[in-house]
Each structure stands twice: as structure tokens, then as C-alpha cells.
Amino acid sequence: MVGGLYALIALGLTLIFGVMKIINFAHGSLMMLAMYATFWLATTFHLDPYLSLAVTVPAAFVFGYAVQRGVIAPVLNAPEHNQLLMTLGLALVLDNLALVVFKADPRTLLTAYSQSTLPIGPLRLNLPRLLAFAGAVVITALLAVVLKTTDIGKALRAAAEERDGAALVGIPVPRVYAVAFGLGTACVAAAGTMAVPFFYVSPDVGNVFVITAFVVVVLGGLGSFPGALLGGLLVGVVESLGGLYLHGSLAQIAIFALFILILLVRPDGILGTPHAA
């Protein structure tokens, strides 16, 4: 069921990559920020984590938009590795700032429903995990509709396909890029917020999910939305089944090996359309 979250995180990652061709190393840090925001809203204002989605997601969009404008835009035309370094620098700043401000101690938010389960057959499904899964699917569907039907969605897809062409037909590419980064951040923030009721918060918590999300994105094809969704579910399933047969770390090796294999053989993923390297 964590697969749904992976898919949502991967969706943000792939959206940013698809439009801007940037691999966002700070993705996990953005998720961590959203989780702390949720935690803080709940402890200070007694705002339910699910209600705080209404705060964290728009805030994340604005934050992502601003980050793109202030930090990523200056290196858009720089060599690819400089963009990587930029997001890496951003991650270093955010993670260590969180460490200074929030301390390394993992924190847990206990809600009335944290331990609630739905008995389905012999299994008991944890309610927050189920909600996170459902939420991820809903948000993904919403995003798909936005991308398909709205003007900004069309502009995003156009900019993703052909940057110069999009600029020629009058699409404000810099703004579209900022919107893409904002949306990507909003996705990962939503995932972070929905993870809080069943997971701890700590400055490095983003890595727990995002490393897997990288695999998901590569698996589904960098920049492919359906790919991210399918990849997320696939990795989710493999991880739970793998957990039954392979123990902890071996499963990790298997995932990294799969990751390398796909990058080597099919860098466009299982659903991605191969284009000239």
C-alpha cells in the first residue's frame, strides 16, 4: 500500500523531470518539510493531518514555484550536472537547516485513528495507510485531468515536448517551468502530509521514500506519468512480496540492481517512448 505514496512522490519527480529535464535531488527534503509542517500544524493548532492538506499543498506549490524561480532558473541553460548540483545544494541546505531547527530526534504524531484497522479477510489494513493510498490515487487522477484539459496543462505538456517550439507559439516557458516545479513539490508535499499519521518525522525521513521513488521513476520511464503510477504500484508490490521472501537488505540490493539494469538497457523505462539519446 506504500506503493500509492511512492507513485505520488514519483509523480512529482517525473513531472519536474519531464518538463525541465532536471533530476531533483531535493525532492526528499521537500517531502520532509511538508511532514514537519503537518506535524507542527497538528501539535500547535490541533489541525488534523488530512485537513492540513489544504494548507501544506498550496504552501508547497508556492514554495516550489519560488524555489524554481530563485534557485533553479539561473542554471536552466547550464550543463546538466550543474542543475544536479543545484538541487543537491538545496537538499544540503534544507536537510541541515531542519537538523538545526528540529533536531535529529524522530517524532511521531499519534492520532485517534493511527491504529485503526479495517479487517479484510485475515488481514487488517491500517486506516491511515489505506487513506494515503486512496489519496494518492485521487490526486494522481486529478493531476492527469488538469494536464489533459486545462490550458496550463497543455502548456506544461508542450514545454515538456519541445521547449523552443513552445516558446515560439507564445507559451511563457519560464512561468510554465515554475508551475511544474510547484506542482511537483505539491505532489510530494501531499504524500508527506498523508504519511504523517502512520510514519515518524525526522530530518532525513525523505530519503526513506524518495530513494525508492527514484527507482519508480526510472522504472516507469523518466518523465512518463502513467509510468510513474505503474512503477509505483509495481515497486510497492515487489517490496511487500519481496519482504516475504528476501530479507530487508537483500531486497534493497535487488531494487538497486533493477534500477541499474533499467538505466542501462531501457533508460526510457518500461512505458517510456525511446528517443534519441
Binding site: M86, A91, L92
Partner: peptide, 10 residues
């Protein structure tokens, strides 16, 4: 370090 890295990149 992170800030220096970002500034250096730009």
C-alpha cells in the same frame, strides 16, 4: 556548504 555550492554553481 550547501549555500556555497549553490552560489558557486550559479
Amino acid at each position: 556548504y550547501g549555500v556555497i555550492l549553490m552560489v558557486a554553481v550559479v
